Amino acid sequence: MVTYEFNRESRLLTPGQFQQVFSKSSRFGSSHFTILITSNNINKPRIGFAIAKKRVKLAAQRNRIKRITRESFRLQQHELPNIDIVVLVKSGIDNLDNATINKQLVKIWRKIIQRHKS
């Protein structure tokens, strides 16, 4: 049975886990996202965020971006391979509406899935 849960196991929690992704990762991107991924040996994908205050000034906007990304990840996690993901954003993302952000994320998830099938 497919569950669409997003719990503690679905997140990168420790600095060590983030460091692992930053040290050996492949990148996927769009005009406003850079997504770093590295394979993990647990049986599910995990996600973490590194959204700089320099790129998105307002906390409310940073939280909105995280919320949209988390939700998109939650719905796509069953298609994704066992990878750790760190989401970085580029300047100007706070001017996009939710639908546009979502569209970019879906495209990136699709790219990752495609790349891992081959």
Score class of each variant (00 low, 15 high):
residue 51 I to Y: 01
residue 61 Q to W: 02
residue 89 V to S: 00
residue 10 S to W: 04
residue 43 N to F: 15
residue 28 F to G: 02
residue 13 L to H: 07
residue 81 P to W: 03
residue 60 A to W: 06
residue 46 R to L: 12
residue 43 N to K: 12
residue 26 S to N: 12
residue 105 L to M: 14
residue 85 I to E: 01
residue 63 N to P: 05
residue 6 F to G: 02
residue 76 Q to V: 02
residue 117 K to P: 00
residue 61 Q to E: 13
residue 94 D to F: 03
residue 15 P to H: 09
residue 88 L to Q: 04
residue 94 D to L: 08
residue 99 A to Q: 13
residue 78 H to A: 06
residue 50 A to T: 15
residue 23 S to E: 15
residue 28 F to L: 07
residue 92 G to R: 04
residue 114 Q to A: 11
residue 96 L to Q: 07
residue 45 P to K: 01
residue 67 R to F: 14
residue 87 V to Q: 01
residue 7 N to D: 14
residue 96 L to S: 03
residue 30 S to P: 02
residue 77 Q to A: 05
residue 8 R to N: 15
residue 25 S to Y: 05
residue 13 L to S: 14
residue 110 R to L: 11
residue 11 R to K: 14
residue 36 L to R: 01
residue 19 Q to F: 10
residue 105 L to F: 06
residue 47 I to N: 02
residue 80 L to A: 11
residue 99 A to C: 06
residue 42 I to K: 06
residue 100 T to P: 03
residue 29 G to I: 00
residue 14 T to G: 06
residue 48 G to A: 05
residue 76 Q to S: 12
residue 15 P to V: 08
residue 100 T to I: 09
residue 44 K to G: 10
residue 37 I to T: 14
residue 57 K to Y: 08
residue 107 K to L: 13
residue 118 S to D: 09
residue 15 P to N: 11
residue 117 K to L: 08
residue 90 K to D: 08
residue 1 M to E: 15
residue 22 F to P: 06
residue 112 I to V: 06
residue 74 R to I: 05
residue 57 K to H: 06
residue 17 Q to T: 12
residue 62 R to H: 04
residue 43 N to M: 10
residue 108 I to G: 00
residue 98 N to K: 09
residue 49 F to V: 07
residue 15 P to G: 06
residue 14 T to C: 07
residue 99 A to M: 09
residue 29 G to Q: 06
residue 110 R to D: 12
residue 66 K to D: 07
residue 28 F to H: 09
residue 16 G to N: 15
residue 2 V to I: 11
residue 106 V to R: 07
residue 51 I to G: 01
residue 100 T to H: 01
residue 74 R to Y: 12
